[in-house]
Design a protein around this nucleic acid. Structure first.
Lengths: 245, 245
DNA sequence: CCTAGTACGCTGGTCTGACCAGTAGACTTG
DNA sequence: CAAGTCTACTGGTCAGACCAGCGTACTAGG
C-alpha cells in the first residue's frame, strides 16, 4: 500500500541540483563549476558534502576536476564511456561468455548493416572506402584496429540512428575488453587480418549495391571468422547457425 | 610516443582494491565491508578518502550503506540498473528522439524474437503463455505492464543469451522513461492495450511454430502499433518501412 | 523460564578547520 | 616585448568532532 522511503542525504541533493543544471542546458560541456569552497557556501553545506557530490558526478563522467586549476571543475560532454564501463562490469559480474557477446554483436551489427545498406549516402560510402584503404595500408595492429573502428563507425552513422552508433561502439569495446590479450597473442594475426579485410570490402560492395540482406550476412560472417577462432568448438557451432540466418 | 599520465588519487586506489576484491569473488553479494573507520586504518588513509571511495562504489551500484547499521556497507549483486541509468543519461544528453529509441528496440527485439523462436523450450513457452494470460486478466495499467515485462523477459530468456536479456530490459526501460507521461495520458488506452495483447498472442503462436521470421515481424509490428501512436507522422513513416523488412 | 522493553556501542552522515602540492594568470625582470 | 618568477587560489588529504540511526545484548517484568 505504501512505498518505503529512504532518507535523502545532503550530497544527493547537491548531485541532483547540478545534474539538473546540466540536463537543462544551464551548464554546457566545457563550462566550469564554482570551486568547492564556493559551492559549499552556495549550497549551504560543508566541503566534505560538496566533495562527495562532485565525486559521484565525476564517476558518472559528468565532470572532471584537476587540482590547482583556478577555473574550477569542468563540465564534460556526454560520452558513452560510462555506458561501456557499466556494461563491461555487468559482463564480468554475470561471467558472460565470449560466445554470448559475439552472438549479441552479430545480431546487432547485422541489423545495423542491413539498415545502413538502405540509407547510406554517397558521402558515407566515401568514408567507408577511406577507412577500408587505411586498413589495407595499416602497418601495425593499432593502426589496423583504428581504421577498423572508423569503418564500423561510418556504417553505424549511415543508419542515421545515434543510439545504434553508440551501442555498436560500446559493444565492440566490451568484446575487445574481454579478448584483448588473446588477440595480441594470436598466432596467425597476419592471415586473420587479411581475411578480415577481404570480408569488409565485400560488405562495402553489398552496402554500395543497397543489398541489406547480403551486407548483414557478410558482416556476421566477418565477425564469425575473425573472433570465432578464439571460441571453443561447441560455441563456434552455435554461432555458425547465426551466420546464414 | 608517450602517453599522458595523471596523478592517481588515494581514493582511486581504495576503489580499485575493493572493486578487485568484488570481481575476484573475494567479496560476494550480500557480504559486508568493514566499517569506514576500520577501512581507514586498513588502507592507511583518512576517513574522507575512504568515504569518497565508498561514494564512487555506491554510485556504481556495487555497494550500499545505511547509517547506523553495525554490519557495515553491503556488497550488492550486479544489476543492470546503472546500465540503464547511463543509457538514459546519454539519450537525454544527445537528445535522441523517441523514433530512434523505437527503431533500435525494433531491431534488437526483432533479432531476439527470431532467435527465441528457434531455441525456445516447452517450459519457456509455458512461461510466455502464463504472462500472456496475466496480461489479459490485468485490471490496471500497472498489472498489464508487469505482465508485459514478464512476457518479453520470457522471450529474451529463450535466446539463452544473458546479454540479450539484460539489454532488452534496459532498452525497454529507457523507452518507457522517455514516454511514461504520454503513455499515462493516452486517450484510448484500452483499445491500445487490447490490440497490443492480440499482437502478442500472434507472436507467441509464431514462436510456438518456430517461425522466427514471422515472430520478428510481428514483434516489430506490435511495437510500431503500440508506441508509434506517440510519434510525429514523419517518424512514423520512417519506422513503417522497418516493420516489414 | 520466556518475552518485552530499554540502553549501549557502534554505524554512517555531516561539519569544522587545517595543511600541502599543483596550476593559471598576473607580475616582474631582462 | 618575451622570458621567467610569484602569488592567490585550486583540489586532495588529513584530523577530530558531533549527531541520529540501527542491531544487539542486556535487563526488567510476566
Amino acid at each position: 500500500m505504501f512505498e518505503p522511503v529512504s532518507p535523502v542525504r545532503a550530497y544527493e541533493r547537491v548531485v541532483e541540483q547540478i545534474e539538473e543544471a546540466v540536463f537543462a542546458g544551464r551548464l554546457r560541456p566545457g563550462a566550469r563549476l564554482p570551486s568547492e569552497r564556493d559551492l559549499m557556501t552556495q549550497f549551504g553545506v560543508s566541503r566534505s558534502t560538496v566533495r562527495e557530490a562532485l565525486r559521484v558526478l565525476q564517476s558518472n563522467g559528468m565532470i572532471q576536476s584537476r587540482a590547482g586549476d583556478p577555473r574550477g571543475p569542468e563540465v564534460l560532454p556526454a560520452s558513452p564511456k560510462t555506458l561501456r564501463k557499466s556494461m563491461s562490469r555487468l559482463v564480468r559480474a554475470e561471467s558472460m561468455s565470449l560466445a554470448e557477446l559475439l552472438q549479441f554483436r552479430m545480431l546487432m551489427e547485422g541489423s545495423a548493416y542491413q539498415l545502413a545498406a538502405r540509407l547510406r549516402t554517397e558521402t558515407q560510402l566515401g568514408e567507408m572506402e577511406t577507412a577500408l584503404r587505411d586498413m589495407a595500408d595499416a602497418k601495425g595492429h593499432a593502426a589496423f584496429s583504428d581504421a577498423d573502428v572508423a569503418f564500423h563507425d561510418a556504417v553505424a552513422r549511415a543508419t542515421q540512428n545515434t543510439l545504434i552508433v553508440v551501442c555498436s561502439n560500446v559493444v565492440r569495446g566490451v568484446v575487445l575488453d574481454s579478448i584483448a590479450d588473446s588477440l595480441a597473442n594470436a598466432a596467425d594475426q597476419q592471415a586473420l587480418m587479411s581475411a578480415y579485410l577481404e570480408h569488409h570490402s565485400d560488405v562495402l560492395q553489398a552496402i554500395r549495391d543497397r543489398d541489406g540482406a547480403l551486407a548483414a550476412r557478410l558482416a556476421r560472417q566477418a565477425l564469425y571468422d575473425y573472433y570465432g577462432t578464439f571460441l571453443p568448438q561447441t560455441d563456434r557451432n552455435l554461432l555458425a547457425t547465426l551466420v546464414t540466418s
